[in-house]
Design a binder for these strands. Structure first.
Lengths: 348, 348
DNA sequence: CTGAAAGCGCTTACAG
DNA sequence: CTGAAAGCGCTTACAG
């Protein structure tokens, strides 16, 4: 079934059918009705490719996720409580806006060409990129591609520097400073003075920055930044366990630790438990992100909450904005985060 | 940049450029090289819409998820440990096969027209449908749409009856009988005789069938099927809590229970714990699915394991098969499941 | 082995 | 308000 047949059956031209489909005003109600009747009767849907080729939008949004796991790891991307709420939210929001969502997983920077390809093939109107690590491959996309992009977890200043003159990019940033400050302040208010950190990968924007904020806040309170308590993690469970074990063997424990994500917080808690160090009785732990399991976990995790849905909504709104306006521009949005107090910390 | 310009720059016709792009054999290596060089130099990617309009495949697969949650529920689809490993796997597998994945969430049967629309607009070559409840809307799609579809969690016999003569449908089914039998047998081997079930929604294929298998297996062992121990759940956490509380107040507890999914198993465990009934000391619990959190949970959940990745892989293979062969056909694949023994059951 | 030409199914100035 | 016609950027018989 194509528009030509609809036209014939309704006794009009293809032009008129097209006007009806696109809801143009210049067609009388009676004609519109007649055409719609035929369209409904035959379950007609216009061919997407023909429409796009003739100049319409694709109504498709690309969602590109840079996973932190190896493709062979059994812990894959969406299992990661950080990504799945985002995928969830983005798909829902896109669908409810009438858009189709193309979801793509990127395992290595070298696969970035996939993003460019998707744009150049004109499969999507715009893209959401959830990245973690700084990569030159990604930055080359900011330079080349003039299509609307919203990016999360990337240093805004780097983007502003790298992006080409045609770029239409928005950055969604988290107010990490506020989140980390609240976490540190809370521990201080509970009497803690020996506070450590389980940091995220330092090649990532958020991993690096959360660590900086942490150090600054300790100094603000006049507390020592003890290198022995600064654990190098990489956002995954596996990397944390041996580091925490080393810490335990050193016999020098802090009284509290802040992790750069919840998974690492839980990995630490499990490791402490296995060595009969109780949380929160013996050591207090704060996570980051508030992934869905954080609340179910025992002890329920005190953590810095990311409002996943709101962040996704804001991102999609910004993307729509960029899609509608075809003038190059650059915007940064800083999303609010806040400490969610549960059971994993105690007064000293 | 379009093929015409590439042709001009390479000194050939658009036909030849097309032959190179599509990797047709009838073009000499030298010409191919020359064209490829220009293509690479200009980062040329053929326009997807033009290709499809001219008769090529879309290389896009639709993934349609029927969620069990209300769109307003804070527990949304991917948070549900059942869906997210599937989304994960499907996206990965599709991407690695060179396909694009269009992910769509369906909250109500009335939204089924979205699936039909996606097919009729020729956005996808085929679709994966992960359903839960029987719905006439979905069945009307099996009747109308002649596009390749793989469907999970749906009664194969119903599909075979409803599908139209042109349908190219494959069903991926789980060997629920084996899973439930192993669970019951395991509890019996631990000495349990008063075994209850926390059933899934009885409007869903798997909810209904797991219950049937459970009843049959109890009878096989000559054990009583006690209505007081048959809890009505609906696969969600919220519905289980009050039912378990009713059971607790009745003062008549079974010594073991099998839940139709892990979430309900955990909801039951949490509720028992709150009433100082210990798992597994006082009551043994078995879940179903082996969602990612099942292993981290305390007590680590003994559960019937669904091999998510393998099931997804098999589904995608069957879908590719259906896409390649355009003769109508119907296939059923029964995926293997098995009991994963952990800590949530004990000898009586 | 290669190119000219038709065609895929729409949309959109343009003319009336 | 409406239709004829050009055009979007490819692919694919077809002819040579």
């Amino acid at each position: 079934m194509k528009s030509e047949e609809i036209a014939r059956l309704a006794g009009v031209s293809r032009s008129t059918v097209s006007r009806v489909i696109n809801n143009y005003p210049n067609v009388p109600e009676k004609t519109r009705e007649r055409v719609m009747k035929v369209i409904r009767e035959y379950n007609y849907e216009p061919n997407q490719s023909a429409r796009v080729l003739a100049g319409k939008k694709t109504n498709t949004i690309g969602l590109f996720l840079f996973t932190i796991y190896d493709i062979n790891s059994p812990y894959r991307i969406y299992n990661n409580g950080y990504f799945s709420p985002f995928v969830d939210s983005f798909v829902d929001i896109g669908n409810s806006m009438g858009d189709y969502m193309l979801v793509h997983t990127i395992y290595k920077p070298e696969e970035c060409w996939r993003i460019r390809q998707t744009f150049l093939q004109k499969r999507i109107d715009g893209g959401i990129i959830i990245s973690t690590d700084k990569s030159s491959e990604l930055e080359s996309i900011f330079r080349d591609v003039s299509h609307p992009i919203v990016i999360m977890d990337y240093d805004p200043s780097v983007i502003e520097k790298t992006m080409g003159p045609e770029a239409r990019i928005a950055v969604v940033d988290l107010n990490d400073e506020k989140g980390i400050n609240e976490a540190v302040d809370y521990l201080v208010s509970l009497g803690h003075r020996r506070i450590g950190m389980i940091a995220g990968r330092q090649t990532s924007y958020s991993g690096l920055r959360r660590r900086e904020c942490f150090v600054r806040r300790l100094e603000h309170h006049g507390l020592p930044v003890d290198d022995r308590y600064m654990i190098k993690g990489d956002f995954t469970w596996e990397a944390v366990v041996p580091e925490i074990e080393k810490l335990i063997y050193s016999q020098q424990l802090p009284t509290a630790m802040i992790a750069s994500n919840d998974l690492m917080a839980m990995a630490a808690i499990e490791t402490f438990k296995r060595h009969s160090i109780r949380v929160p009785e013996d050591i207090s732990i704060i996570g980051h992100d508030d992934i869905p399991t954080a609340a179910i976990y025992k002890p329920a995790l005190t953590t810095v909450r990311i409002p996943f849905f709101d962040v996704a909504k804001k991102s999609m709104d910004m993307l729509s904005e960029l899609i509608e306006n075809d003038t190059p521009r650059f915007t940064v949005y800083k999303a609010d985060v806040g400490l969610e107090v549960r059971e994993s910390c105690s007064r000293i």
